[in-house]
């Protein structure tokens, strides 16, 4: 089993909110992705067993939603908004700066497996552009200085085994 007891309990808790079990697919995928960091066929199978619905229905829904990585990503997923409001305030140069600092290209994971860098569409934080999302958290009105600090903090907290939360 990939899903742990906590995730399974969370999914079961979500299930009771819906009269139709299939509605719990998206909540279940969300719980699974939070635990594992990405999704795969084995996870769909486990969810289909918990929800008692066909495997294919879970897999089909999952394939539609781009928010869930379908391949393993680094410990921290950095998502840079490249949509218009952020682009007008330097999102492209922000991506270049992150590429430079992390020594990787967009779409790649750092060799220490700590960071994966991708760019995404508008995250609904346009008045605080440029901005990025790392894991569950938004970082807004970014400057070089702020980026430096954010990355340092994440590196440090992963050394101490401490996880950030929103």
């Amino acid at each position: 089993m990939i899903l742990n007891d906590i995730s399974i309990a969370k999914i079961r808790q979500k299930m009771i909110c819906y009269t139709v079990r299939k509605s719990a697919i998206l909540p279940a995928l969300t719980v699974a992705c939070r635990q594992v960091g990405h999704l795969n066929n084995e996870i769909y199978r486990e969810i289909s067993v918990i929800l008692e619905i066909p495997y294919l229905e879970v897999a089909e829904a999952a394939s539609f939603y781009t928010m869930f990585p379908k391949k393993p990503v680094g410990r921290h997923l950095i998502q840079v908004c490249h949509n218009i409001s952020c682009a007008l305030l330097g999102a492209d140069s922000l991506i270049s700066y992150l590429e430079e600092k992390l020594g990787i290209k967009k779409g790649e994971t750092s060799p220490d497996n700590l960071f994966t860098l991708i760019s995404v569409e508008c995250l609904g934080s346009c008045t605080s552009a440029p901005m990025i999302q790392i894991d569950d958290k938004y970082y807004e009105l970014l400057t070089r200085e702020k980026i430096d600090r954010i990355l340092d903090d994440l590196k440090e907290s992963s050394l101490n085994g401490k996880e950030s939360s929103f």
């Binding site: 299939k22 969300t30 829904a61 539609f64 869930f68």
Partner: peptide
């Protein structure tokens, strides 16, 4: 109910499908 990162799900009928666990 939280979504899965698709802009189209803001459109009300797509939202309904999404809430039903479909694409």
């Amino acid at each position: 109910h939280t979504g899965g990162g698709a802009y189209i799900c803001g459109e009300e009928t797509a939202l309904l499908n999404s809430l039903e666990g479909k694409r």
